[in-house]
Write a protein that binds this DNA or RNA. Structure first.
Length: 500
RNA sequence: GACCCCGUAGCUCAGCGGUAGAGCAUUUGACUUUUAAUCAAAGGGCCGAUGGUUCGAGACCAUCCGGGGUCACCA
């Protein structure tokens, strides 16, 4: 498909042709870069300019001021921006420079100096075109007003275009790179924490013949050779547990999960989850591990445990508050619902002004009350513990509290961040619970779990006592980078396809 | 899925019934230390799409397509 070129695109193609006619390769192979822009800016000293007598920088031209026989441009590399000064006579190809544009990638060799206006710059002795840009980029200009505030002119602000063309967003709004650099640091810190403790990073199938380990609608696909339906995983859980059965004592996986559900500020159809399983541990051990882990990550990635998110400051310093689910409801509603059956809970929900479906089970109603009345209060890190059995088909029964499980969810800033159990390893109990899920499914709950015979067989071989945890990485990054939309922590968030 | 807002030049936006506008970007000219460089001139648009109302629609109405936001769904 060809598309009509606008005047700026046509002009750049003409310039490209001219450069080629002049013997310039507009797309050369390498450039020997010696310095990052920021390294020069921070290390250059006026009393010792000889330390920067020959530098080679490379990057994209982001601003261009031509003044006849001399020009200034700003060159942006991964570290930042530095000004280059180009003068006829100093470089042999100054005339070709007129065919360069904002957006072109260039290499500049030269010496560092400070201009009359005080800006540290590179005085070019060689100029090399490294990539001719054929499409114009938006130009963001930033200036400080009299009060010292930064004012943006012509920012690239259209969110749709920024998400669809993230490459352009990163060029024009380089400050957003910080979020993604932090994302990488967060994941690296987490990985290192686990590796240091001897737990093994593993990979398990994304294409699964049965989906399980969570309650969600899957994406469905088809394998041609096997002529069979496969599902994109909604969770790693059942495969990681098989590895614990196999004898590994600590395994974790950081990977994409896929859920075929609504999209909003905290949900993308593909998202990154970390799941870890450690043998011979229970959920109480896991609480201590998680709070230490989060402290470690915050210290490593942010150098502080006090995190600003929206209007709140959250402290990730251990220990985190622990609050049983039913007590949390009592604390925020004044209602003691312990021991109530579904009928009694329906009445309580009505008193609290919460609408629930008439056929809702006790677990669903409790969850509804929690979501409506408690969750948004949980700003500081809080472990909600002791979830009802029917809400937790893969968690071990509580060792002392009837009808409850050994489970916690971690809430921060009113959102769920982690979910963990003492993992159910009794194969007979597990079969009963999954069969109950099957009955929910038959009753119309299309998100109830499927029964995975092979997983049950693995449990029959025997899984040691194990604690497991899942942490939503995207939300963790949002928390630690003070972003309120998941789209701002994903390079390429899911968008609707545009018609041709 | 419901409701509200948005879609006009490469970018950011104004125009809200009467000949399509501004700033930046772009082009041409001047300028060998500029800083949103400056000065002078110029080009650039199926006003998201399709129907309708009207003598006349970028504007009003309807539908559709994209996006943002609230809510619902996501235990």
């Amino acid at each position: 498909m060809t598309r009509e070129l606008n005047d700026q695109e046509l002009r750049r193609r003409e310039e490209l042709d001219h450069l080629i006619q002049h013997g310039v390769n507009p797309y050369p192979y390498t450039f020997d870069k010696t310095h990052d822009a920021t390294a020069i800016l921070t290390n250059f000293k006026d009393e010792a300019p000889e330390e920067f007598k020959t530098v080679a920088i490379a990057g994209r031209i982001m601003a261009l001021r031509r003044m006849g026989k001399a020009s200034f441009c700003h060159i942006q590399d991964a570290s930042g921006r530095i000004q280059a000064y180009l003068r006829t006579g100093d470089i042999p190809n100054y005339d070709d420079f007129k065919l360069y544009d904002i957006g072109d990638i260039v290499g500049v060799k030269g010496y560092v100096f400070r201009t009359k206006m005080g800006e540290i710059s590179v005085h070019a002795t060689e100029l090399t075109l490294l990539c001719k840009s054929l499409a114009p980029i938006p130009i963001a200009k930033e200036v400080e007003d009299d009060a010292g505030n930064k004012v943006m002119y012509d920012a690239f602000a259209d969110k749709e275009l920024r998400y669809r063309q993230r490459y352009k967003d990163l060029v024009v709004n380089p400050q957003i790179r910080d979020t993604f650099v932090k994302r990488s640091k967060i994941i690296t810190a987490m990985r290192r924490y686990f590796d240091d403790r001897g737990w093994l990073e593993v990979e398990t199938p994304i294409l699964q013949p049965l989906y399980g380990g969570a309650l969600a609608r899957p994406f469905t696909t088809h394998h041609n050779s096997l002529d069979t339906t496969l599902y994109l995983r909604i969770a790693d859980e059942l495969y990681l547990k098989r590895l614990i059965v196999g004898g590994f004592e600590g395994v974790y996986e950081i990977s994409k999960n896929f859920r075929n559900e609504g999209m909003d500020k905290t949900h993308n159809p593909e998202f990154t989850m970390m799941e870890i399983y450690v043998a011979y541990k229970d959920v109480y051990w896991m609480m201590e591990m998680v709070e230490n882990l989060l402290e470690h990550i915050a210290q490593t990635a942010l150098a502080t445990t006090d995190v600003t998110i929206g209007k709140h400051t959250v402290s990730l310093k251990p220990p985190f508050r622990r609050l049983p689910l039913l007590e949390s409801i009592q604390e925020y509603t004044g209602k003691d619902i312990s021991g109530m059956d579904a009928a009694a809970l329906h009445i309580v929900a009505k008193e609290l002004g919460i609408e629930v479906e008439p056929k809702a089970t006790a677990g669903k109603i409790i969850d509804e009350i929690f979501s409506e009345k408690v969750e948004h209060h949980l700003i500081q890190p809080t472990y909600i513990t002791d979830y009802p059995l029917e809400m937790s088909p893969l968690a071990k029964k509580h060792r002392s509290k009837e009808g409850l499980t050994e489970r916690f969810e971690l809430f921060i800033n009113g959102q769920e961040f982690a979910n963990a159990y003492s993992e159910l390893n009794d194969p007979i109990d597990q079969r009963n619970r999954l069969e109950e899920q099957s009955r929910f499914r038959a009753g119309g709950d299309d998100e109830a779990m499927t029964l995975d015979e092979d997983f049950l067989h693995a449990l029959e071989i025997g899984m040691p006592p194990t604690s497991g945890l899942g942490i939503g990485i995207d939300r963790l990054v949002m928390l630690l980078t003070n972003q309120d939309s998941i789209r701002d922590v994903l390079f390429f968030p899911q968008m609707k396809r545009l018609e041709a």
